[in-house]
Design a binder for these strands. Structure first.
Lengths: 362, 362
DNA sequence: CTGTTAGCGCATTCAT
DNA sequence: ATGAATGCGCTAACAG
């Protein structure tokens, strides 16, 4: 236990120096682990530090060195297992290289994202990883602000074309295409796309849909493209009624799937772009008294323990969440270590885990 | 966009002052929002700041004020929805009161927890919330270190009796008792307790079990007590074979439930103390070719969207995760605001959500 | 109302 | 090898 010096606040390096009977600089050198210090004085300083319970003030240190040894991370929603996994990848590799990480969740709100960026800038983090990027050109001022201050930025999961930054993503388009192809191979032609762009009403044409998608999250639009790719390859006509638009909430998803299920020529399969969309879809099935894969087939993004214990177990797409984060941290730390930013897009592979939620249409 | 002054690093308050043609202090006062500044100079300073893209250096500010306006949060596992929810409660209320929050996840590792505490101390956070507390007396040195430095600490979910701190928890014991009572009321007498203490082998006696439990996570032992309470009230003898011990992993859980299922007098119901234990249990059921609630009844902790879309839907205990975090932040911020620490235990109510995983034993 | 001055705790020249 | 002095960017007394 630290000796109680009637002082106010935690012990400073000066107090340690005094206790050890040496100059400040000597104490600073041994405690900071730099410069030369004789073995004897070194011992005395260490003993004094131990006795007083000294811990370096990271603020003061950063103040004079100009670096904080900490990475700032902005995620869209820390409650989403996808981001939680990415985060773990980031913190594992950054801590392994001696960096702390401070994470801020925007809960999918742009204002929050801007605020988060400012917090990180103000706290002088050495680098920033963003897994929650706005897409619109006018919405990236806060990211540019960081870059202008020479704070390296790496993006994860969501690409921002107008920014030209190192970005780590998965093969969203391929993954979506593979999933939908799987559905098609099983014989489906009426395939719902659940969790689309947040437009007010159904797109009149395929072109409208793509135009709208382009204004939204990058990963979302890639998944939509993959869906369309698969349809095209199989010469299945695009039907705007089979794509969900509007709020991305589980509740709205349930409504939309219910709608697609009530269509004269109803959907026989559904492709979900997110785990929450899967639960929303399942809820709609239950209400409609339908069961999978008998009445309807189902493939969703973001595998998780629940998907595998469902009865029947769900065929899902698994993302390399940990690697996504690890890679991002790696790239960022390399830049901080002096490497030139490559402004590359690093694509990691996802994996379709085949289980039992796909069958031939009834 | 900030003007590019061939300078190095972001603009400082001195540069803003120079640009505005005023003294440092005047610039500092208007930018820092304290003291009196004439309307005209104020305008000039603001304009200069805007022009240079000035942002206050939080490090420097904290350096001289001694406060950081940030809360440190240590959680056991940020990938666990329970903690993610608590975290949101914390960040919502702390940001509403002008505090940033920096969160560190220990991934249930004590060394990580100690490291996390040190990071927070070094970064001079104003207060700390811990939702991941070690229990053993010798393991709380890092928490005590914070307290010794006059950093207020509030605990969430896990109580540490030896510390006498403000603590926010739910009625774990009651919640568990209610769940097990529900099972008993349905006619069950062979009820498994899944996710128990990490002892090497099954406890010989009830006393052994409790002794071991006392050395573990507080919420876990409370849940065990609730289980025993319910058994006692119904005069059902305690059977050590019906409690899982060992690693708290989904995999081991599956093994243990399989074991209980293979017993001559097998379990007819299972009470799970965590969501992961539920998926582990479901996996065991599948392998055994059993289904609920026909062959076995089931109640688990930590409700979530998946539990409600299972077929049949699961009866689960819902914790007020957001409130838990919000309350903790509130208590902590009140202390920082000058209130005396009450060293109270704040108990929030959980709720049993009855669905369809409980039936009479077959 | 405004400008000058002195720290906050540490790292880092520069003499010694 | 060690100590004294200076500065990081900001707040806060203090004069004026």
């Amino acid at each position: 236990m630290p000796a109680d010096r009637g002082q106010s606040g935690p012990p400073t390096i000066s107090e340690v120096a005094a206790e050890a009977g040496v100059g400040r600089a000597t104490a600073a050198r041994t405690l900071g682990g730099y410069g030369y210090v004789g073995p004897e004085l070194r011992e005395r300083v260490l003993a004094a530090a131990e006795k007083l319970g000294y811990r370096a003030n990271a603020l003061a240190r950063s103040m004079s060195t100009g670096v904080t040894h900490t990475l700032g991370v902005i995620v869209a929603d820390i409650g989403n297992p996808f981001f939680a996994g990415v985060l773990r990848g980031i913190s594992d590799t950054s801590r392994a290289r001696g960096f702390d990480t401070i994470v801020l969740s925007t809960y999918e709100d742009l204002d929050e994202e801007v605020a988060a960026a400012n917090v990180l800038i103000d706290k002088r983090v050495d680098g920033v990883i963003i897994a929650s990027a706005a897409v619109d050109r006018r919405e990236v001022a806060h990211i540019r602000a960081a870059i202008d201050r020479d704070i390296p930025v790496v993006l994860v999961d969501r690409m921002v074309p107008s920014l030209d930054l190192d970005t780590v993503v998965i093969d969203n388009r391929d993954a979506a295409r593979e999933a939908v192809e799987t559905l098609i191979a099983a014989g489906h032609r009426r395939i719902g796309f659940v969790w689309g762009p947040p437009m007010a009403e159904a797109p009149a044409t395929r072109r409208d849909l793509l135009a709208e998608a382009a204004r939204n999250l990058w990963s979302d639009q890639e998944r939509l493209r993959g869906y369309l790719d698969a349809l095209d390859d199989a010469r299945i006509p695009f039907d705007p009624e089979l794509v969900m638009v509007g709020d991305k909430t589980e509740e709205h998803c349930t409504q939309e799937v219910a709608r697609m299920l009530a269509l004269p020529d109803r959907v026989t399969a559904v492709f979900c772009t997110e785990a929450e969309a899967v639960t929303g879809t399942l809820r709609a099935l239950r209400t409609a008294g339908l069961s999978y894969p008998r009445d309807i087939s189902l493939i969703g993004f973001d595998d998780n323990p629940w998907a595998s214990v469902m009865d029947p177990p769900l065929t899902m797409i698994e993302q390399p969440v940990h690697d996504l984060g690890a890679k991002a941290a790696e790239v960022l730390l390399d830049i901080l270590g002096g490497a030139d930013p490559r402004h590359e897009t690093h694509v990691l592979r996802s994996r379709l885990i085949t289980r039992a939620s796909v069958a031939a249409p009834s």
